[in-house]
């Protein structure tokens, strides 16, 4: 465990808590893409299946349980909670996220560490996580105004991936030059997807104006 990875995990945890807070406190999920949340739930389930088979550390197991339960809780709220589900922008959240699932799965069948069920699920979860934010970014572009909690949510999510890239660089130089192409390439793609959002977020912060994304 190094500081970059710990910071990455904490900002990731924070992004989920900010989202849960927003939904629970305001009893509203307007501006939140349910599709992105469903993709994240699939990512966590597909990646953390080793939760019951391989014990790595208490921290590792606790965080896996937290991520799976929080993403499931968010999806449940957006689908079942009587007050929250009414505020879901159904007609705005139109990204065909099934395509993302299918593409990630095909990629995982081709590019994986070993052609085993667990490795393919792991690679699938890595590829899917890289693109899972797309429905959310499209929804933000559509709804133009970004309420600050949703903005912070995306910001923390991007920061988590940026910290992980620093973590991979650190591990590469300190733990023997093991090259791990799958998470590296997927992680770079994922962080690049946030780059434009970061740019507009920074502009809105600098000019102290409400975050407006160009149409």
């Amino acid at each position: 465990m190094n500081a970059f990875r710990f910071l990455g995990d904490m900002t990731h945890l924070f992004s989920v808590l900010v989202l849960l807070l927003k939904i629970y406190a305001t009893k509203s999920c307007s501006g939140v893409s349910r599709k992105t949340q469903e993709l994240y739930m699939v990512v966590f389930v597909a990646r953390y299946m080793d939760l019951f088979t391989d014990y790595i550390s208490l921290y590792n197991s606790v965080m896996k349980v937290v991520f799976i339960t929080s993403s499931a809780a968010i999806v449940w709220c957006m689908r079942r909670h009587p007050q929250v589900r009414r505020t879901y922008d159904r007609d705005q959240d139109t990204f065909r996220h099934v395509v993302l699932v299918a593409a990630s799965f095909v990629l995982a069948l081709i590019f994986n560490e070993r052609f085993t069920f667990r490795e393919i699920c792991w690679a699938f979860s890595i590829y899917l996580e890289a693109v899972a934010i797309l429905p959310q970014l499209v929804l933000l572009q559509r709804s133009r105004n970004v309420d600050n909690l949703t903005g912070q949510y995306v910001l923390f999510l991007g920061a988590y991936r940026a910290f992980y890239i620093l973590n991979w660089i650190y591990r590469y130089f300190t733990e023997g030059h093991t090259s791990r192409w799958i998470p590296w390439i997927a992680g770079l793609v994922q962080t690049a997807l946030y780059a434009d959002f970061f740019y507009y977020y920074f502009l809105s912060w600098k000019n102290n104006v409400k975050l407006e994304l160009p149409a």
Binding site: R5, H12, D50, D54, I56, E113, T178, I182
Partner: peptide
């Protein structure tokens, strides 16, 4: 193997 240590990350 290389892939194993990748699994210690979240």
């Amino acid at each position: 193997a290389a892939s194993d240590n990748a699994k210690d990350e979240l």
